[in-house]
Computed example of a mutant assay.
Amino acid sequence: MEEPLWPPGTFLGRLRSATRERLLSVGVRRSVKEAQVLLREGALESHVILLDDALVKVTVALSDGRHALLAIRVSGDIVGEISALNGTPRTATVTACRPSVIRIIHQNTFRAVLRDNPEAALEVAGIVADRLRWANRRRTDFTSYPVRVRLARVLWEIAVAYGRRGPRGVVIDIRLTQDELATLCGAAEISLQKALGGLRADGIVATGYREIVIRDSDALRSIAGLLKDVS
């Protein structure tokens, strides 16, 4: 059977084959349904989850009862590593966006693998650093750019990481509500709706059931002030 190709920026994608297979072998394989909660914010648990064939969203509860979207994770990513490393309660809720396959690794097993495989330990540290850098950049975007630019940047980052090319353009077929997209952009939902409507009116994006299509990549990249293309 041909080995899956993990995206290079994901945890599994960064590892050598032997280390990756070791981690997969110690994980308990589970199938989960769309909308199933995998990790719950505040829970006192310490296992980690490898996303074998999965798409999930990471959210946190706000004081007004809403939920803010922090991140999207895909096949090859790891979630829950912070609680496994320091024993603290879950800092966010992780929910499946589609039927998925995951592997559950208990805390002691995960720590043992990291001790025996320094490469894996270094990659976990690198992933934590990348996520902190992303969060810092998002805070800068909140204060430095108007909503239209912030939305363009968020859509571009998601497209680069998780989009797929199709005849209509780059398709982001991740189920995101406008409220979730607004919180990811650090904007009020009504402001997000106005910015998204402007991108639609300009022919830059199209929206449909559970998807956003980037029809004009160059224009979106220009609005975002970015240069990187979707591979």
Results as ranks from 00 to 15, higher is better:
R215C: 14
A54L: 00
M1P: 10
T93C: 13
I212W: 04
S83H: 07
G27V: 03
R210G: 08
D173M: 04
E3C: 03
T10I: 06
R165C: 11
W156D: 09
A152C: 04
V28K: 13
I78H: 05
L114M: 13
A61C: 04
A120Q: 04
F142T: 10
L184W: 00
R175M: 09
S75F: 07
D77F: 07
L44A: 13
P8Y: 01
G126A: 10
V170F: 01
S25W: 07
Q178W: 02
P146A: 13
S31P: 03
D216K: 15
A71C: 04
T177Q: 04
E2T: 12
R115K: 12
Q178Y: 11
D141G: 03
V170Y: 04
A187W: 05
L196N: 04
A129I: 00
R14V: 03
V101F: 01
S17L: 14
A201Q: 14
V32T: 12
I158W: 06
V37L: 09
V60H: 06
R221A: 15
A195Q: 07
A129F: 08
S231C: 00
A224W: 04
E180W: 08
G225T: 01
E21C: 12
P118T: 06
T19L: 06
P89E: 06
V230I: 14
V79I: 13
G197P: 02
R20Y: 10
R221C: 02
L122N: 12
V28L: 11
I223K: 01
E157Y: 00
T93G: 10
V74G: 14
V37F: 02
S231K: 10
P167I: 10
S31D: 15
L23N: 10
S231Y: 06
D64C: 07
S63L: 14
S17Q: 13
A129C: 07
P89C: 08
G80W: 10
V154N: 04
D179N: 11
S231F: 05
R30D: 11
T19H: 11
R103M: 04
C185M: 01
R66K: 14
R148T: 13
W6F: 15
V128K: 12
L192I: 00
R20K: 13
R40C: 04
I223G: 01
G13Q: 09
E157D: 15
S191K: 10
